[in-house]
Each structure stands twice: as C-alpha cells, then as structure tokens.
Design a protein around this nucleic acid. Sequence first.
DNA 1: TACAGTTTAGAAAACGTTTACATAACAAGA
DNA 2: TCTTGTTATGTAAACGTTTTCTAAACTGTA
Lengths: 341, 341
Amino acid sequence: MSTIKDVADRANVSIATVSRVLNNNRYVSPDLRERVQQAIRDLKYEQNVMARNLRRNQSVTLGVIIPDATNPFFAEVTRGVEDVCFERGFIVILCNTSEDTHRAASYLSTLYQHRVAGIVLVTPGDLREELRYHIDKGDPLVLVDRPLPDVPADMVTSDNYGGGYQAIHHLVELGHRRIGLITGGHHLQTTKERYAGVQAALKAAAIPLEPGLVYEQGDYMARSGYEGLAALMQVPHPPTAVFAFNDLMALGALSYAYDHHIHIPDDLSIIGFDDIQASEFFVPALTTIAQPRYELGRIAAELLIDRILGNDHALTNERLPTYLVKRKTTAALVPVNGAHA
Amino acid sequence: MSTIKDVADRANVSIATVSRVLNNNRYVSPDLRERVQQAIRDLKYEQNVMARNLRRNQSVTLGVIIPDATNPFFAEVTRGVEDVCFERGFIVILCNTSEDTHRAASYLSTLYQHRVAGIVLVTPGDLREELRYHIDKGDPLVLVDRPLPDVPADMVTSDNYGGGYQAIHHLVELGHRRIGLITGGHHLQTTKERYAGVQAALKAAAIPLEPGLVYEQGDYMARSGYEGLAALMQVPHPPTAVFAFNDLMALGALSYAYDHHIHIPDDLSIIGFDDIQASEFFVPALTTIAQPRYELGRIAAELLIDRILGNDHALTNERLPTYLVKRKTTAALVPVNGAHA
DNA sequence: TACAGTTTAGAAAACGTTTACATAACAAGA
DNA sequence: TCTTGTTATGTAAACGTTTTCTAAACTGTA
C-alpha cells in the first residue's frame, strides 16, 4: 500500500506538495500538480484517512448501537442515520446488542476507543452508569427511541404515551370495551409509556383494566405476538380487540388468528405500533400507530453532527408525534348478544 | 481527551511502560502497574485505537456494502457478518447503496481510505472495473449473494439456480402447469440464475414458458409483488400458481390476493424465496425457498477475516444450498374443468 | 539596480501510539 | 571483587498524514 511519501518520491516533490494537491488548499503550480496526480494514478495511491484524522484530531465516523438491525423498526432508524451521514461525509459503524446490556457497554467503549465522533444509541437497558462515564468525558451521544432519565444527553423519541392513547382511543371509538394487550418487555421505557397511554385512554373511557387481558410476555418479536394472542383467546371472556405493542407482534397475532379461524377484523380487531414498511402488506393490511422511524434516525444524526461540528445548542429532548394509520385490521364492534344462543 | 503521555506523566513512568500495561505484553512491576492503572482511572483514559492501528499497520474494521439494510434479507446477512466480527474483535462499517452503482463505488473508495481490513460486498450492479482496481492493489474483498464473473475475489452465494428449480418443481409436483413469475431486476445475476432454474424446471416438466405469465417489473420490494400479481391476474388465462422471486414480493402478492378475494392456496398457490424471519407469520404462512441468509454473512466474514489474518487460501466460491420450506401458501391444484360452467 | 513584497515549495514538527534498542540495576558464579 | 547474565525501565524512532515555519525565487516599484 503506497503512502504519500511514495507519491512524493515518484513525482519528485516534497510530501507537503502532495498533501497540498490532495486537499487542494494551497496553490501548487500546474506543472507539479500534474506530476503529482500522475504519480497518484501510477501508484494507485489512496489517502490514509486514519492518519489524516490522527493529525487533524478529528473523526468522520458515527457509531450506531441498536438492539437488532434485523428488526425492521431499528433497520429503518439506522437507515435514517446513514443517509444523513452519507450526505455529510460521515460513515457509520453498526453495532447490534441483542438487548444485552453488557454487549452495549462493551461496544460503547470500543467505539470511543475507535474515536468515533459520536454515538447514536438505542439502549438495551439501564446504561446510565456507563453513559455518565463517557458523557463526563465529553463524548457526544444521542439517545434514540428509548430515553433514560437523568442522562445529560440529547434524546429523540416518539410520543409513546400519545401513541398508546391513540391506539386505545381508536378501538374504543369503534365500540370495543374488552381490549387485550400484547406488551413488550416491561423494563423498557417505551413499553412503560405506551402502557401509561393505554391506561389513560382506558380510564377516559371508563373501562377498567382487566389483568387477564394483558399478555406481558411479549418481546417485540413476531412469535410472541402469536403466543400472546393464543393466551388472550383462552381466557373466559376473550377480548374483541387487541393492541399489540409493535407491528411484528401484530403480525404474529394475525398469523394466530388465521390459523384458528378468527376472522380479522370481524371477529377481532388488531392494532399495531410502528408502521413498518411491510405493515401495509400484511393480511389484512395492518391498522397501526405510526412512528416516524426514518425521521427518528435522521434527526438524531443531524443533532449529533451539529454538536460534533461545534454548534453546541442546549440539550434537546425531541419528541416526535405518532399518528393513527387506519387500514383493515380494525372495525366497529358488532354487538353479539345472548339472544342468538 | 487524555493521551498515553498524560497517563505516563501522572503515574511518573515512561509512555513505554504505560503501553506495556495497556497491552500487557511485557513484564511490569506490580508497583508501577498499579500506579499506571490508577492514573488511567483518574484520567478516564481510553486508548486511541486509530493511532495504535497506524503504528501497527493493522486494522480491525470490516466494511459491509449492501443495497438496503431495511430489506430483511440483507439485514440478516449483515447480522451474520456483525456477529462474527464481534466474536473476533472486529467492528463493521455499514453502507447502503440503494442499488446505486455510483454510491457503491464511492463507498468502496471511502472504505479503503479508511483502511478497513476488508469489505463484504453485495454489489448493486456491474462494479467490475472499480473492483479490479482495488483488488489489484491487494485490498481484501468478498462478494456475497451476487457474484460477478471474472472478478478474482472470494464469493459466497446461494444456489439460486437450484432454488429457482426447486420452486417450480414444487409447484409442478402439486399439479400446476400455468405458473406465473414475479421476477426481480434482470440486471442482477441472482435474478438471472433463478430464472434459469425456473426455465430448466419448466422444460423438465415439458411446460412451455408463456411470456404473458411473467411479470418483469418486480424490484424485490413488496409493492411490486402486489402490482405483479395484479398484472398476472389480468391475463386471459391467469396462472394457478405464482413464484415470487423473493418473500417481500410474495407478501405483496398475498396482500393483493386478499384484497381481491383470491383465496390462497385454494384459488392460487404462491411460493417465495429467501425465507426471511417474518415469512413464517405471513397470512397464510409462506411456502418458500430458504436461503441461509445469516450463514451467508457469517461465512463471508470468516473468509475475509481469515484472509486478513494471513491464512491465504485459494479463491473460494462457496455456493450454499437452498431448500424448500413447505408452509401454507401452496396446495395441489384442484382440477376445475369446463363441466361446471 | 536594489529592495520589499509575494508566491511557491520544501523541512520538520506534530498527532498518539508501539516497539527496537539502550541502559541501569541487580543477582550469581568464579 | 569482577564478570556475566538477567530483568525492569526508559529513550527514541516509526507509522502516514497535515501544517507551521522557513527559504528560495520571482515580481514590481523606486
């Protein structure tokens, strides 16, 4: 691998001159410039960005730490980050934690050791101690999707509380009163917030929360949605509508319903959360609470890069709105009363 | 940000000693070692991996260039790469090309300038010229999923030809003779191979290929599957079975079928390709040709890292087998003849 | 013709590490 | 006591850049 020195030798100039044509920030005579460029071509020289960054004491790399890039929600967030990075000349290092706090902590250190300019983090759990350590040093960081209290970092999240409220409100408006829940992990702030929104909406509609109607073992993956609906349909008075805390679990629920001849939305309404790209093509097309996934990533990246570039604004806590996307999995409750039996 | 020099000063030792406790590769007396470690803690020192790599002339970073991390297939491949990297102390830089050859070429250069140790590439098109340039320099590279002829690089792909054959064979075995195709972009080698497999299987069954039964505008995204099936059902003699060249398009087709009251699999059989995680939960559960997506990524990463570490084996061209996963979207053709009309 | 000012290019220091080399201290065998 | 050998530490060079500083060469004006 050839270096700037090789180029300089071949072009019979000093390395300073080569550096100047590389960055063209100083005048170099056409003659020398041409010789240098020829040498670069001859040697297939590629600038060593690491060395450059070392000398300049800068970095054009962002770290992204997410639970699982295989989950469409995080994939879309990551895509937002990466697109901004591409536009602004950064590159992104991707790290999957599999919801493992240790792996996240490990990646956090690794990334800063690699001198990333900043990190976009979807935390798998309570990483406050590790974060404080890094933030105290001044390492830029932005928390996405899952906030963490008392951490002095930028955060960009969506309005999970509002989203939970909207989901239930929609179901209630359709006349449902027996509403089942398939939640996600309860250690997650997002789950808690959605749950709080649910409770508020239920209360507003004067519907008591029935413990039997909430399946708590959801883990935001499709299979648990399948199992969740299975459990919910086993209770004495099954729900007429179910709110799955994300689209993947809603997909699982749809699958269970199909397998057991539960007709959606006539027999049962299902509503999801996220509005991942595919949800439009679920069968039936999924009614869901949309989050601006891609925007979440974009905004986080913009925030981070701005801060890195020295535009230090006050700590932001951006909370993006969610909204209902009505499709085909929810419908008005048709009152079936005992008269038929 | 403190440096090794700061640590040395505070611990009253030379930087060499600090380096030695950092890498613990030389004997350092317990006394000094303790002082150094204390200083590291005090200063919150983090090793600068870039500087280390510069000096050692090594790199522990892999680049991954894929069309779109938002596509579950590529997400799962990437996940395979990343897991191997984590195990072996590497990190991965992720680049999405959006199927844009220029963006890919740009990333290729950027990555090598960042001195990644190697690149895992799912090429968006014919990048042979650019690749030759880099390969000639000796930059390690492995092509995944989409091979490129005459490129002296390791390749790991799946048996798309065989997969295409299997898909058609399965449908034929079920009695179908009017088989529709929703293909992907025809500039892609994978598409061509699947298509060739299809043709071979059709020929083996003595079924002529009807141009009207192949929808060529597919782009491997769900929407085009929806539109593809729409187009196929409009022809005078619509197919009784459809092979969508990937699961996402199969999902789109399922969605169209549902919207237009085409019952799957009774009225129409559908088979996909990939076996992405979610396909098991499609409605109905998707019959598909499975590719070892995660393994594709893992093997690519192993190959690359081995080569980087100097185990230079001959060029490999690993071709992983595909296999049929029978689920609920295909069924035996029930002969409906004119007698009923 | 001389002088100041400007332009162009090279020399060398710096970025934060690792590591080859040098050296001091000490133990042990003669 | 004097070598010799070992061990523990430090000094300095090197990695590939950028950039400050310096110097040489040129330009133009008096």
